[in-house]
Design a protein around this nucleic acid. Structure first.
Lengths: 357, 357
DNA sequence: GCGACCGGTTGAAACGTTTCAACGCCGTCG
DNA sequence: CGACGGCGTTGAAACGTTTCAACCGGTCGC
């Protein structure tokens, strides 16, 4: 029950506690034979310095805070893998990840502020950062170490890592262009989100560079969600000349498009190609091609930047933009899994005849 | 930069630090007017006691540890919601959740042991507990507070909370029986997992109680996974008289069954009813009926038990079994979403003719 | 032969709390 | 009027580290 302390070690090794501490933190200062003896006792007793005591003296906690984003507007569908990577990349730096949520009746910002005041963490990792995120103003304002997964238009310089969504979507577009598609639609979130607008820009740029003029009628805007994706495809399918491919800025939207198209008896990868973003398990299940965020790299960089901020809060904050990877599956024609259905096209025609005003 | 300490408060309020501490922790001991004055200063300065210092003296950390289960064998597909509920139920008790992973080259058990030695947490929450889990022997052995999500055959008594999988599966079976099904198959994991065996037992019991004799040929065993589910349905469909309903012990298996049945052009909810377990987003998307674990209740109970263990490690560990809820969707005939396909049956027959030896 | 220096070690202070024995004051009772 | 109690407050110790000035014994240089 009683934990073994540095004092136990020092007594047993016949040295002072200062010496034991030196053996552990500055071995070069202590004579080789003393060092050996102390290390021997340390391993016999299985001694590990107490984090709390060490933290009190060093004014550190060896913890980094991550506020769990509210469940409802959960765009970050990859929370699971994100946390995994974050925790395992933080670990070698002697850091652990503390999850927290605002107390009931507290705003998110108050949650951050409270944790700072209580001296609860050494720094924060933010995610789902958006334009002019108030958290950045708060943290940069008080000079508290943090790093953001996602860029932001903020006056203060700050450390961030982001996925190059524009290039990712561009890769999807180029993949579809390469497969012969020319009428490539976009299903995107409403204007005003950092990552959303970035992806839209990538779509337009890729088309333009390939000599295809982006057609505004092929750009549908809606909130995230499977149902919204279905609705989006319904609207696209009623156009004079419907698209042959759809690029969605998120898997859920893509899944909606895909399901709705299937229910119109369209053959995915043949009649219609679809791509998503985030490479979610649900999407993978349905054979959805998707842009995968390299979360391992992202987390490695996040932790590196954060460690720098903690160690030297005065240095210039750095940042990184990492390139995602397009995972090609059957939804964009990789290898067709379902058997062809010759009546698919006529189904689409029937649907359109019924619904066009 | 310099945080405000209890000393700042005491000086400004013209009292000793002891008094400030009493105001915060034992207000009845201090005179009302002093109390007011101190509280006034506390709120002016936004003072919050430093967790590290408080923890050092109390020999506590106010943190509970959760080891992120290895990604590969991730049965706990609801990690996201689980953590959400865990964090928000722990918060009112003044506890935060620390995630950790074994250092590279360390076993899981060493990860736990290390954290105990370093005095890193006040207690652990275990999940994915299995028969005779070595973590339970370790923690119960050294008398370290913990609570387990999942029962286990362990010699030592320990605190746990579990979902009554048997009853959950039983509910699914009764639902199908009520819809008129009699040949109800089971797709389950291989024998030897605590929760798996529990669910199998629930399946058999529900059938027996309803006067239907369980047919061993209708029980398929396979590892978790969508592909395994597909394979399971292929085997079931080749039986002399195939089942009209399938109960799976997990959503991924159910999804496999469902997808494979669809690819045979069976109409879900009409030709074949399917139920899963865990109510995953992917399942919900496909209209899969599923047994939902009441994670909020589970986490509330987990935290309560753990707090008791921490406060009074000598008391008898308690436990709770909570009943899950069956969510009925179209896969078991709730409201059929697809239009009927008259040729479905003949497709099945064609398939069977082709594949039976 | 003496001071300076150097490597190794020690002891004490400090980190920010809580706890608790001791103290001072005031009113009450004998 | 002195002893006693009770209430409110204080001061110091303790929690387990790290850090750092000081110390000690030995060696070197002059």
């Amino acid at each position: 029950m009683a934990r073994t302390t540095i004092k136990d070690v020092s007594e047993r090794a016949g040295v002072s506690v200062g010496t034991v501490s030196n053996v552990l933190n500055a071995p070069h200062r202590v004579a080789p034979d003393t060092r050996e003896r102390v290390l021997q006792v340390v391993s016999e007793l299985g001694y590990r310095p107490n984090r709390t005591a060490r933290g009190l003296q060093a004014r550190r906690t060896y913890l980094i805070g991550y506020l769990l984003p509210a469940r409802e507007l959960n765009v970050n569908t990859a929370l699971d893998s994100f946390l995994h990577e974050l925790v395992s990349t933080a670990s070698p730096h002697g850091l652990e990840v503390v999850l927290f949520a605002p107390q009931p009746g507290q705003t998110e910002l108050e949650g951050y502020r409270d944790l700072i005041r209580r001296g609860g963490v050494d720094g924060f990792v933010l995610s789902e950062t958006n334009y002019d995120d108030p958290r950045i103003a708060l943290l940069a304002g008080v000079g508290f170490p943090f790093v953001s997964f996602g860029r932001s238009l903020a006056r203060d310089p700050f450390a961030w890592v982001d996925v190059d969504g524009a290039t990712g979507i561009g890769d999807a577009v180029r993949h579809l262009l390469g497969a012969g598609h020319r009428r490539i639609a976009l299903v995107a979130w409403p204007e005003g989100s950092e990552s959303g607008d970035d992806r839209v820009a990538g779509y337009r740029r890729a088309l333009t560079r390939a000599g295809v003029t982006p057609d505004p009628r092929l750009e549908v805007r809606c909130l995230n969600g499977v149902d919204q994706g279905k609705e989006a495809w319904r609207r696209l399918s009623l156009l004079d000349s419907p698209p042959t491919a759809v690029v969605a800025v998120q898997d859920q939207l893509a899944i909606g498009v895909l399901l709705e198209a299937q229910s119109m008896a369209l053959q995915l990868g043949v009649d219609l190609a679809v791509t998503g973003f985030d490479d979610t398990p649900a999407g993978a299940l349905l054979g959805l091609s998707s842009v995968r965020q390299p979360l391992r790299d992202v987390c490695r960089l996040l932790v590196e930047h954060l460690v720098h901020r903690i160690e030297d809060p005065w240095a210039d904050p750095g940042h990184d933009l990492v390139r995602p990877e397009l995972v090609i599956r059957s939804s964009s024609g990789a290898d067709v899994i379902n058997s062809p259905r010759p009546w698919a096209r006529s189904e689409l025609h029937r649907y359109r005849r019924r619904h066009r005003r």
